[in-house]
Design a protein around this nucleic acid. Structure first.
Lengths: 341, 341
DNA sequence: TATTAGCACTCTTTGTTGTTGAGTGCTAAC
DNA sequence: GTTAGCACTCAACAACAAAGAGTGCTAATA
């Protein structure tokens, strides 16, 4: 018993119907809505087979069938193979997105907003942690007698700005010299390298600035450590209320509570390694909280470094076709942006 | 017919009971739970009076009574008058809060998190817009040949960092001179002043830098304009699921949707002018979306300038006593912090 | 005169029961 | 191999009854 042409046809019809209606579908209704070419009785037999094979489940004996995660996986793989990317909204999106410049974080956040609006699902933007990235520029700026800001730009575009308390005062020229030295020594290195090896060396080498470097540099890193979470932006969280599977208050609650757990979400998203689109369906997700959800993640890379992630999360009964097409569009513009900065 | 001692006693009992149980309460139950000293029949008469006076309502004829917004208002005014501030958690909170330094925004955000955890309601932190505040420090930093970051520190502690595209390149010394000039001319002024009057003057005066100033300064302000929303931080949004009045999916949805409307929320919060705690109950709120909610807002000022807001939002049946006491605590520490920076 | 006991009445909530209809699996006929 | 027919299942819905918490009114009471 394998998946012949007819079984595939029936399965696809069921998946598509369920994505639209969220209702279990029976053999008779299927023949009415779709042109399968066989009678309900035959479909019933095929459905029983498909259930045995694990593609369909039945909420109760006298109900229709609903697709399993396995069925969605088949459907999605088929879709990805076809890659029938629609080309809607191309122009308006392009100009809007390209008009924005600035930090990658902003671009991701803005894209996430568009994404949730276009798909009506919840969208998540995630910027990488600073640790793995490379220092592009560091600049100490004295604010007043007691405070210095260390402005830090990385190759992933993240700009962190730890505010340091530094009693004793320091004038601009001095911070300028220190900044120049730090740039010279540290630019291009990863933060891990800097922290592990170079601070010591630097202290020894730069005698004339040893006091300030001993005070400031560890302080900068300590503060960075503290603020260095994954930055997570959510959009369209209330969209789940549009879906009947979340009209149960407990489901809605657990979904929204899951979204509030930043660490869980970022774990789930960053676990995707491959560049491009990754789809994980229902129980494929690493956390049980997400077992009724599908997560579509676009990973952005530049020269091997991960620059950020963009995700859509929704019910397993997700309109994969639509979401994939929108995400492919947005991804291509972001990649364009990444290459041209 | 006025509010005699006994009516007040009964009303207070009803309010307190309803805050705890969220169930309409009848005369008999009231006598059982509280020691009023009269029979249910008497209480019924008094309740009928209180209903006529607008302090109570009845969901239906054979149900108990629930307090109206007017009743909560009376209760809250009484509470504020008493100011029975409990002194729990004082020490742990103090050390935690004072350990944090840095931007006021961070302090507000962190406080909001504590606040939602301590009260189990939703908490909102709001930092002021940049427009009304004064420039404390501006520093242009060249990142590469095409980008300059303008780091801007204001007296409200907000640090904005618009990234500007500036083709042509500019070396550090040059940006340094320009920064110094801008600081000299602009520090201490409000952004409105700068924008309206001074840009023109500056252009004329500073001949040697006229080209860059003509290019950069308007660009900085344009970018500021774009990013200058109220910064709004939400915490504990899913806490509403704990309250039976939001166990209806539509209520929950409309509450959460309201929270997503940043402009509405910030309008509601910033409409409070007075320093200290402001409470608006149910229909007292300016927006109908919030007519089932109470909003308790702490406004922080320093020398007349509003530095930020901290709010708790929840059902009108809010545990005012508890929330007020927690907010008084946190506010006092934030004020302490503000004065000592 | 203010308070209270008693009573009839109201209305929601909860549980029961029957009906409907969409769906199934199985069998026998085509 | 496919399909018509049939008995069966089960959720959803509506109708109905009973329970229970509450009310307002009236008459008795302190």
């Amino acid at each position: 018993m394998d998946l012949n042409e007819r079984k595939l046809k029936i399965l696809q019809a069921i998946v598509q119907d369920y994505i639209q209606t969220a209702e279990p579908i029976g053999s008779r209704t299927l023949t009415k809505r779709y042109n399968i070419g066989v009678s309900p009785a035959t479909i019933r037999n095929e459905m029983a087979d498909l259930e045995d094979l694990g593609y369909l489940t039945q909420p109760h004996t006298s109900a229709g069938r609903i697709p399993s995660d396995k069925a969605y996986r088949l459907y999605v793989d088929y879709l990805l193979q076809m890659k029938k990317i629609a080309s809607f909204q191309r122009d308006s999106m392009k100009t809007n997105l390209l008009k924005r410049f600035g930090e990658l974080e902003d671009v991701l956040q803005y894209s996430s907003k568009i994404l949730s609006e276009l798909t009506n699902y919840t969208s998540i933007a995630l910027a990488p942690q600073i640790k793995g990235s490379r220092l592009k520029h560091i600049q100490l700026v004295p604010i007043d007698n007691e405070h210095i800001i260390a402005m830090i730009v990385t190759d992933t575009g993240v700009i962190k700005k730890p505010l340091l308390r530094f009693s004793g005062g320091m004038d601009f020229d001095y911070t300028q010299k220190v900044s120049a030295l730090l740039n010279e020594k540290l630019a291009g290195l990863t933060f891990q390298d800097i922290e592990q090896k170079l601070v010591k060396e630097l202290k020894e080498e730069a005698h004339q600035f040893s006091s300030i470097i001993q005070t400031i540099v560890p302080e900068v890193f300590k503060t960075l450590e503290e603020i260095d979470d994954f930055e997570l932006f959510l959009n369209g969280t209330t969209n789940i209320f549009n879906f009947p599977e979340f009209s149960d208050i407990f489901r809605a609650k657990s979904f929204l509570t899951m979204l509030e757990e930043k660490s869980l979400i970022s774990n789930m998203i960053t676990s995707t390694e491959a560049e491009g689109l990754t789809i994980s369906i229902g129980s494929e997700n690493p956390f049980h909280q997400a077992k009724d959800c599908s997560l579509i993640t676009a990973t952005f890379k530049l020269e091997g470094n991960t620059m950020g992630w963009l995700s859509v999360i929704g019910p397993t009964r997700m309109d994969y076709s639509h979401v994939i097409s929108v995400m492919e569009q947005i991804s291509s513009y972001i990649n364009q942006l990444l290459k041209n900065r």
